[in-house]
């Protein structure tokens, strides 16, 4: 009974993670400029990857494997915002202006 509940839960996590991964991928393709695509990459790194890894943790039970999975989760949680921030900052300093909806100067966006 408990076993089945665990399996169902990890199924849900893994499928949910897969769904968010694909949504993030679609977002990377659909969104109009680099800064908006950062948000789609955020979906992949936070929701997609973490849900899927959570599903794996449930499958692994309690062992060294779980520890390693949790290390990966922690690691992605700590590094992905750092990488995104560094990327955005570098792009901004590199002269790439975000395309904005307000302000009316749409032509500033460079593709």
């Amino acid at each position: 009974m408990l076993e089945m509940a665990r399996d169902l839960l990890s199924w849900a996590f893994i499928l949910g993670g897969g769904f968010f991964l694909i949504v993030g991928g679609i977002g990377l393709l659909r969104l109009p400029d680099f800064f908006t695509r950062l948000h789609a990459a955020g979906i992949i790194d936070t929701m997609g990857a973490e849900l899927m890894l959570a599903g794996f943790v449930l499958q692994a039970g309690f062992s060294l494997v779980t520890v390693k999975l949790l290390l990966i989760v922690l690691f992605i949680m700590f590094t992905s915002p750092t990488a995104a921030h560094a990327l955005a900052k570098a792009a901004l300093h590199g002269g790439y202006k975000p395309r904005l909806a307000t302000g009316g100067d749409d032509d500033r966006g460079s593709d």
Binding site: I43, T46, P81, H85, K89
Partner: peptide, 15 residues
Amino acid sequence: YANSITLTPGTVAID
């Protein structure tokens, strides 16, 4: 704080 802003999709701290 900056990392928390970036972790929530929809907002990214850029500077």
